[in-house]
Simulated scan of single mutants.
Amino acid sequence: MTAAPATPAWPDGKRFAFTIFDDTDRGTLDNVPAVYALLRDLGIMTTKSVWPLTPSRPPSVVGGATCAEPDYLDWVLHLQAEGFEIGLHNVTYHTSLRGEIAAGLQRFQSLFGQRPRVLATHTDCGEGMYWGSARVSGAQRVVYDVLTRGRQRGFGGHVEGHPSFWGDLCLEQVDYVRNFTFPGANTLTSCPWMPYHDADRPWVKAWFASSEGANCGIFNATLDEAAQEQLEDEGGACVMYTHFGKGFCNDGVLEPRFVELMTRLSRRGGWFVPVSTLLDHVAAARGGVHALTRGERGRLERRWLRHKFSHGTS
């Protein structure tokens, strides 16, 4: 068994790295701007995902605001100008066909002046890239199929000839795609090889993992005082995956414990940058994106399955 890569040094003598990927589910102008105002004031730059296209069908699971809404788009563009990264959460909140996906990627670039460097799949959209049982391999896929029987659809984003195939477009335009989510604030402890390339899933340039923060309560539990101290002591990196539309701001008031924890974190001397900036740094420090072995992948898959089916993570 090969040793895990060493944790890189962080710029400017920072003791750890921290970022957030905000899944845009349920995010609207009523519940997320206050969260970003807090992060901006604390100097914590993160990644906010969007749906660039106007939806034409009901949500696959859950919706939220899209870039088709002028006031929302103006706010997102303002976030980008302030230094937040804009990422992709599929092109809209329902399953899209290849032509729609291509149009959505083009619209993203026209709106934000660049391609979407980072992606997290919207749950149950049929164009999911290596989603569902394709996330895992071998015996782990058998376990996954048994435990999700009757509750998973087929996903065709990576399947040539499928109406929603867009693997070539993903490979061309997206640098980093999220896959596994793990407990614990130090994401590099759970997935020391990220960002990594998986030769068995060739339509994705590089994958990254994330730390569990699905809603405000889980986010706070993952990033409590003890977890912050451990993250700093280990000199690690945290990529929190969350939904700022789920409980962080209620009736215009930020959740107090979240404010307390983020304020505390901001004073710890971390490197607070968007997702792609953090992953670029790790890859550069290691001489490139790690080529994941099948043994390493099996370890990640088993760890993720244990977490997923005991805690219901995505």
Rank of each mutant, 00 (worst) to 15 (best):
R178W: 08
E160H: 12
H89M: 10
T187N: 03
Q114N: 14
G104H: 01
L171C: 04
F182A: 09
L88D: 08
P183A: 12
F108G: 06
G161W: 01
G154H: 13
R151G: 08
M194W: 00
H94G: 11
R135V: 03
L111A: 09
W166R: 06
C191N: 11
Y176M: 03
Y130V: 02
H197N: 08
L88E: 06
R151C: 08
E85H: 10
R201C: 00
I101R: 10
V159C: 07
L97M: 15
G126N: 10
A103G: 07
L119E: 11
G128N: 01
Y196W: 14
N186S: 07
Q106G: 13
L105N: 00
T121A: 13
D198E: 10
V143L: 11
H122W: 03
V91N: 10
S190K: 05
D200G: 10
G104D: 07
M129P: 00
R141P: 00
A103T: 08
P202E: 02
G161A: 04
Y93T: 11
H89L: 10
E160W: 09
P195C: 05
P195M: 01
Y144T: 01
H158P: 02
L171P: 08
R201M: 09
P202L: 04
G184E: 03
F112E: 05
E127G: 03
N186C: 10
E172V: 09
S190Q: 11
R153N: 14
G99R: 15
G128S: 04
V118I: 15
H122P: 00
S137F: 06
V174H: 04
P116D: 05
A185V: 07
L169G: 13
R149L: 06
Q109M: 07
G104V: 04
G167E: 03
W193C: 05
F108Y: 11
V142C: 02
G99T: 13
L97S: 12
Q109H: 11
D198L: 03
G156N: 03
G161H: 01
A199W: 01
Y144V: 01
V142E: 13
A199P: 01
P202M: 06
H162P: 05
E100N: 06
H158C: 07
T95D: 12
W166K: 07
C125R: 10
Y144I: 02
G126A: 15
S110Q: 15
H89E: 11
P192I: 09
A199Y: 00
T189Y: 07
L119I: 08
S110I: 05
